[in-house]
Design a protein around this nucleic acid. Structure first.
Length: 407
DNA sequence: ATCTTGCCCGACAACGATTG
DNA sequence: CAATCGTTGTCGGGCAAGAT
């Protein structure tokens, strides 16, 4: 009895394992971003020479240009450059100097070095030497120390200055003899600088403790390119969308291919096709439910849960969750993460709608204060704190009662 | 002077999303 | 499907600052 069950169980297990291989592939492909998918396709189809598949990048230009330009400004993780910019607000500085700083930050390369000469900056921004110096002073005090340098030497010196280490001979070393250090010509260095072993090795230790690539350890967001999965167009209050099939290379199978590989390729292709289909289905519902979002240029948003869509499509919420992961919509008001369209607790949403109603219908000469709204809501059986009302009001884009007052 | 709002910030709960 | 992860809402109470 037990044995039989065992066999049945095992069969089930192997079945589900076989099934799960395909499932796994499907799930993986579904949750990939366009970039990941491209990498995957390239990797998958280039590793075996036995396969001859034509990876036809139908839109090479689109692929190259757009990905450079479209920086992901809606995802949450801050990149190296954003972190730098953020620090500017810690300094008390004039707007003009701040603008110069921002310009400099945006022109750093991904290592954190500056490639634009001071003369060029002056020329482009039309600023004085003094202003430029002020700006550099601030840039050099941003963390990680060493950003905004023109050379390795300068970068290291900035870091030393930040550590309050000012040593003329050490600076001389850095400026002139780093190449000797690389070659380990210690005696020559000692001779040139006229120092003994102890000092030499203390210098070397110090230099080794510095970071030659300031941006190391930070995500260099500019490198992360986003290619939209979906293109949305709004015409006369109607929303149209199109799946950006051109985002991935076309896969054409050329000659006769080994049957085994052929099957595998087919599996991959059908999974990719499925990914597009799923996205398409999800988008249809999103457009319907979040039409307002698009027609209002992203200002208004309805409540929408992943599970809402899952129910409607008879998919599990996991699938929908994976499908919207790292997918982006291109609209005429920017690239939006699909994930952003799912939000808001329904009770919270209801409360906000109530507040909106009250404010919309209030006597403009005597607007409701937040406390008034608390009382009104309490009569409706909704108990929330004044601070919460304040937050909702702000979220809805209403000013304080003083400022709403009209005479 | 009085009313209104903004703000602080950790702790806790609740609910969905994610993952395997 | 279940365990875990992550996000968001909510609260507190009182003070500072702004509006009237």
């Amino acid at each position: 009895m037990d044995n039989k069950l065992d066999i049945v169980e095992k069969q089930k297990l192997t079945q589900s394992l076989k099934l799960s291989q395909m499932m796994k592939l499907s799930i993986n492909i579904l949750k990939m971003s366009v970039m990941d998918l491209n990498n995957f396709i390239e990797k998958e189809f280039s590793k075996d020479l036995g396969i001859s598949v034509e990876l036809n990048y139908s839109n090479q230009e689109n692929y190259d240009n757009e990905k450079e330009v479209e920086i992901n400004y809606l995802t949450d993780e801050k990149n190296f450059f954003q972190i730098l910019e953020e620090q500017l607000s810690y300094f008390k500085i004039e707007t003009k100097i701040k603008e110069i700083c921002i310009f400099i930050i945006n022109n750093l390369n991904k290592k954190g070095y500056l490639e634009l000469s001071k003369i060029e900056i002056k020329d482009i921004l039309k600023v004085s030497d003094k202003e430029l110096e002020e700006a550099f002073d601030i840039i050099h005090n941003l963390e990680p120390y060493g950003v905004g340098a023109y050379s390795l030497e300068e970068c290291l010196k900035i870091q030393l200055k930040a550590k309050m280490i000012i040593d003329k001979r050490l600076f001389l070393f850095i400026d002139n003899y780093l190449y000797l250090l690389v070659d380990k010509k210690y005696n020559l260095i000692k001779e040139k600088l006229n120092i003994n072993d102890d000092i030499l090795f203390s210098y070397i230790d110090m230099i080794k403790s510095l970071n030659p690539i300031p941006s190391r350890g930070y995500s260099v967001g500019k490198v992360k390119k986003i290619i939209p999965d979906i293109l949305v167009e709004i015409k006369e209050d109607e929303v149209f969308f199109e799946i950006n099939r051109a985002s991935i290379p076309q896969i054409n199978i050329k000659d006769k291919v080994n049957v085994k590989y052929y099957k595998k390729i087919n599996e991959i292709v059908s999974c990719i096709e499925k990914r597009f289909e799923t996205l398409d289905k999800i988008m249809k519902i999103i457009i319907r439910k979040q039409k307002k979002f698009f027609t209002s240029q992203g200002k208004k948003i309805n409540t929408l849960k992943i599970s809402d869509i899952a129910n409607e499509l008879n998919l599990s919420s996991s699938t929908v969750s994976r499908a919207v992961k790292e997918k982006y919509i291109k609209t005429d008001f920017g690239i939006i993460s699909l994930r952003k369209l799912f939000n808001l607790d329904s009770a919270v949403f209801l409360h906000q709608q109530k507040i909106l109603e009250y404010i919309e219908n209030e006597n403009k000469e005597k607007p409701f204060s937040d406390q008034d709204i608390v009382n009104l809501l309490e009569k409706d059986g909704i108990k929330i704190a004044r601070r919460t009302v304040t937050k909702y009001r702000e979220k809805l884009g209403y000013k304080s009662s003083h400022k709403r007052k009209k005479y």
